[in-house]
Design a protein around this nucleic acid. Sequence first.
DNA 1: AGTATATATTGGCGGCGGTGAATGTTGTAC
DNA 2: GTACAACATTCACCGCCGCCAATATATACT
Lengths: 126, 126
Amino acid sequence: MLTVPLDEARARELAEAFAVLADPVRLRLLSLIASQPGGEVCACELAGPLGRSQPTVSHHLKVLFEAGLVDRERRGTWIWYRARAERLEPLRATLATPRAATRGRTAPRPGGGPPGAAGRRRARPG
Amino acid sequence: MLTVPLDEARARELAEAFAVLADPVRLRLLSLIASQPGGEVCACELAGPLGRSQPTVSHHLKVLFEAGLVDRERRGTWIWYRARAERLEPLRATLATPRAATRGRTAPRPGGGPPGAAGRRRARPG
DNA sequence: AGTATATATTGGCGGCGGTGAATGTTGTAC
DNA sequence: GTACAACATTCACCGCCGCCAATATATACT
């Protein structure tokens, strides 16, 4: 959750994870896989509706797999993909904010006086 | 939610939003702003602890602002930033998956037989 | 063996994005 | 007015990434 400042290492981890989601092809792949009734899809069903070449789809599936967001299993000629919901949970939890958007709104100070700087002028707020 | 396949337009929207989060500096900025007790921070407090130059921080704050993830208000010399929790909610909701990770797991078919292809061989599953 | 299909990898191109030095703009105090 | 501080913008460099054609690999069937 965004209740405490992120250190650099954790921020880099999360940024890498979000970068995996920052592509429309990968998002569509993930939604196609996750929305499947049986929970799994053959990769041959994924190349078609995305309007991308087979190597491109294979590349994005590899990115999703190496990020741990999907699982795959070879059964004969075909490879079946499953979404890993437990890997999306931490990302989802990260986007939770401590307070509601409209609560705790302090009134703006028209004079521009920073909080805690009653006496001094031109000093950094804090 | 990932219960229905995303169309290309929606996938592009979401990908743009996630791309904003796909940077460690922006994630740290967002967490620094959101975790502030009063809910707001002066920009001058943000440039320091990130180890980046002032133009870089200014650039990332602009990206966050134009994405609607933070709000800003000028009060004299300083500019105060607030997190917009209501803009993070849709992204958070997107990452919800319909089923738990360990539920509904169908047993793998060792023969490789695709579902619905009882009679035919070498045909695409589905 | 050969042939066909499914998926992965390679290679190269083009574009986007993070970064900071230098510079510009805005606001306050004198 | 001048001087100083906070913040924004411009510019150029560099690296990464999405894309596809070609090719490679794997599996199945004859």
